[in-house]
């Protein structure tokens, strides 16, 4: 017992010694919080930033877009990540888009259906239409592919079509974009929705899927960039007032063509062509 107490005390002492905060004035830390959709991308951009800016650390945290806005207002974070357009009540913040997130509906390449109306898509996803023949396709049951809760594409999709998650009647629930694409590519009667970046890349590389237009507008990376395609949202970096110093440099790097590869790898649409 005595040994145990001794070990515990020694451990605590060692921990507290090691825990003494390394006060290093040369180190500047930029703290980002907000959208969990953007966090992995910004963490990757942050690493690239740290490579070219020794002495600056980029700490990225998540918690959702609203948290990012609250943290920037309270000055807990330097930069907030917001994966939606700012609301009028949030106009006190300075926002800079770094990329766009577009979502499109996909079907199998052999599916004769070329386009679907907004109401048809709503009916398919709520289970009111159950066969392709009702929307001009083959006489076959529709396999509705849905995402598991909290996926960013799911939120964009539901928001655009004015649906609540509990209204959706899915046949298959998948995790990420790749899984959704695999499911649709392997089932001629399936419909799903995925990130445009991933879908157009896969379709161009021979995966048997077709991207459905929305309101007559083709879901291309170009149409997402210009804003013609409606099912999209901006990925914003927000600050209190214009960013300065290292934060400014970080925002500029994130927007620039030097990060286009990272933006694409995370399935988003970069600002620059």
């Amino acid at each position: 017992m005595r040994n145990a107490i001794l070990i515990l005390l020694l451990g605590a002492a060692a921990l507290s010694l090691w825990a003494r905060r390394a006060e290093d004035p040369a180190h500047e830390t930029i703290v980002l919080t907000g959208s969990s959709t953007m966090a992995p991308l910004m963490a990757a951009i942050g690493k690239r930033f740290e490579e070219s800016h020794p002495g600056v650390r980029v700490d990225v945290h998540t918690g959702g877009s609203s948290r990012g806005i609250a943290d920037v207002r309270e000055a807990v974070a330097t930069i907030g990540m917001v994966s939606r357009a700012l609301e009028p009540s949030e106009s006190d913040l300075f926002a800079v888009p770094i990329a766009h997130d577009g979502v499109c509906l996909i079907v199998h390449r052999d599916n004769p259906v070329r386009a679907l109306e907004r109401e048809q898509i709503r009916a398919i996803y709520t289970g009111r239409i159950e066969r392709w023949s009702a929307v001009g396709g083959r006489d076959a049951p529709i396999t509705v592919v849905h995402k598991s809760a909290a996926h960013s594409t799911l939120r964009v999709f539901l928001h655009h079509f004015g649906l609540r998650n509990e209204q959706v009647q899915p046949d298959v629930v998948v995790g990420d974009n790749e899984q959704a694409i695999k499911t649709v590519a392997g089932n001629p009667d399936a419909i799903g929705y995925v990130s445009i970046g991933t879908a157009s890349h896969d379709a161009a590389h021979g995966v048997p899927i077709r991207l459905l237009p929305l309101a007559g507008i083709e879901p291309t990376v170009e149409n997402v960039r210009t804003g013609r395609y409606p099912l999209r949202r901006p990925l914003l970096l927000v600050t209190r007032g214009r960013p300065e110093g290292a934060a400014k440099a970080l925002v500029e790097l994130a927007r620039s063509s030097r990060c286009t590869d990272l933006v694409r790898r995370h399935g988003f649409v970069p600002l620059a062509p």
Partner: peptide, 25 residues
Amino acid sequence: RSVFDSGRALSVHILDLSLNVPGGT
């Protein structure tokens, strides 16, 4: 570097890979 630094827990990492990172499953 110390307990005053932020650190990502394994469970948080798993959540992030499965929800937010394409191809992270």
